[in-house]
Design a protein around this nucleic acid. Sequence first.
RNA 1: GCCCCGGUAGUCCAACGGCAGAGACAAUGGUCUCAAACACCAUCCAGUGUGGGUUCGAAUCCCACCCGGGGUACCA
Length: 837
Amino acid sequence: MNTEPAPAEIGETPTSYDVSAVETKWLPVWEELDPFRADDASPKERKYALTMFPYPSGDLHMGHAEVFALHDVIARYWRFRGFEVLNPMGWDSFGLPAENAAIRNDEHPATYTYANIETQAASMKKYGLAFDWSRRLHTSDPEYYRWTQWLFLKFREQGLAYRKNSPVNWCPQDQTVLANEQVLADGTCERCGAEVTKRELTQWYFRTTAYAQELYACLDELQDTWIGKVVNAQRNWVGRSEGAHVRFRIEGREEPVTVYTTRPDTLYGATFMVVAADAPLAAELAELGGPERVEALSAYVEEIRKASDIDRLATDRTKTGIDLGVTATNPVSGEQVPVWAADYVLADYGTGAIMAVPAHDQRDLDFARKFDLPVRRVVDTGEPNPEETYEATTGNGTYVSSGPLDGLTDKTQGISTIIERLEADGTGEGTVNFRLRDWLLSRQRYWGAPIPIIHCPVDGEVPVPEDQLPVELPELRGADLKPKGTSPLGAATEWVEVACPTCGGPARRDSDTMDTFVDSSWYFLRFLSPHDHTQAFSSEQAAAWGPVDLYIGGDEHAVLHLLYARFFTKVLRDSGLLTWDEPFSAYLSQGKVINNGRKMSKSLGNGVDLGKQLDEFGVDAVRLTLVFASPPEDNIDWADMSPAGSLKFLQRAWRLSGDVASAPGVDVSTGERSLRSVIHRTVRDAEELVESHRFNVLIARTMELVNATRKAIDGVGTGGCGPEDPAVREAVETVAILLSMVTPYVAEEMWERLGHRPTVAHAAWPIVDPELLVEDSVTAVVQIQGKVKARLEVSPAITAADLESLALADDTVVAAIAGRPVRKVIVREPKLVNVVV
RNA sequence: GCCCCGGUAGUCCAACGGCAGAGACAAUGGUCUCAAACACCAUCCAGUGUGGGUUCGAAUCCCACCCGGGGUACCA
């Protein structure tokens, strides 16, 4: 600690406080008083404040420090404003790092996990956060994952959890499958960075697609209370599009092939059809084409399987594909078109088959060019003809060569005309399509919640009976956990081999564990009744507390965690367990803490250690710096920040508390008006600023109040009222209360020096006196042509007419008008007059 | 490519369509000191990315473009 306490000379007021002494002094007092425990029986109006619970890897870092500091402002503020606040904390404690550490150190993952949890818990306590610690939970506790498993079984009963065989993302490094959401845009694993490959495996899925429409539609309600970019990201991820299914009859095949298109109006321009090469449909059609087509297809599929996702994802890659040797019939024109298989058509989007309209889709045009297929323009947009330029046109235009559409110029009308025709003929219909896929939840790893299913050769998939939950993890450690391509649980013979609950015969447990995102999809519900051994969560408490009033977290979870939690909420609502539609009424994401323009990382060597910052400047100064730095959602570059400056300010604020010369409880209403006016304006602004999450401005306003108070104390003779004035006490108490939301230690210390008993968290929020917000006089500006020419001191109650005549009589105004005729006068009393000449 | 968000003093950031500055960092000068650090006092600093438009009046609203950040990407 570099803040030396001032030498305590007898009779002299110290000029600074000892940061570390204050921290050790108040921490036990708060533990004792426990002011933030939420009362389920409270008659008060409730608020549920939630911040994303951490994964226990090592100690807390700067990112945690920021989000917790921001979150704490809201939680403490609501409490001050008379709400009963639920503000819980726990750990998302299943996950790979613990498992990898266990392999490295030949130990059990729980050892690493729970040691880190204790480290983080101690740091959080020292960090002075307003959590209700009685509700602490860890998702890796059997008492928690028992209910994760129970929820899985409920979902399965409703057909929302199922198993299917499908090509899945496989991370060769972590030796496990990944959800689509866990594969980055460049085709690498979001966790370890390895290049993701594909494998054909039977895996468990949650049917998120069943809720695609609602997950999309409800975003409208969240538009104003969720941070915009997250709503946007969710919208993109769910990916709703409107279009049509169109059925093409295939020569020699009974079933027609259905394609999905968003441009049915270009149907007359379809010159070939393409099916996803890796879909079963392609194989079927190849058989129609003959043995050499089958062979060609399988060679082609082999080739594309070998290509990495990175290559696949390169958009400028040349198109590849093969002719399947079959023809399809265009349902409106009767035209015969060839059918191709290619990898630019995705098996799991739409129907896995498209009608190719090269003139009006660049991908199709590239393909047509490569394989010398015909291009036919059917919309004349006025741009050069794509048949010649090889630049597809996608805009509005006049339909040509399009039968009944010819001459039409409106795309919307063109689309609806074709859809009507298709529907009348029974060859297609309008439809809505989503990009969202089902959520792959199986993981071939150990440290997660086991999937509570038993596979019996006689009875098939049998759920573990509820009274046998939880299915606890067997004790495995070290080398037992090494990735081998199958789950480590599969090798735990004694654990895997069980009697079938239905027939009693030999059977095997499902040896996969659930994606840890399952654990975090419902933790906000478990906080409502964390010690209840009879149910996952209390629906009654959920109705009373929920939904979460404000959720704060990082935007790395903008699609994953938030989407999954929303999905869980909707399923549980439809199961009758919840009454609300969305889990988080408002969502705020904090920016990252970076250093010197770069993300902090070991390889760059620019990490900032939170512990060191706390040791050097103290908890309060670090919290203040993070809150003051910028609006919450902006990144903070630590290199631009000055925790030393923050500490300087806190010392100045603290010093005020030693200068107050009136007694506690003095009648502040007799205090000096101008200072009181600043106090009450500050409080009014503070309310608005906290509610609109402009915490950085809140700090600025508090600094302003500190400055004004200092002047009032010292400035006797120059307008200051001196330390005895009751307004000074009111000001300093207000500073302590405002600061307690951000810097609880120094605020508590000030509160004590002001002669109050702890804790400042119990202080009454100042009531704003509207009388004190009225100003004695205001400065009105007079503009000529919008440029300021003069200022007038006027009464705030002045009438428009009076202000106008006052302004027009002003010498500088008269001079500025210079005799020109006044054409118009705009008056916004009492602040502004604009003269137009 | 498409979709979001942003661009204001050297830096971080404020500013209901109405005086561009609330607050801070840095810098400079001073007080204090044997000297320095700390502390305190004072000073300095931009016309709001560019170009149009709307308006009596634009940092703020609209359009186009440039730059930065993020999301997404053969999604038919």
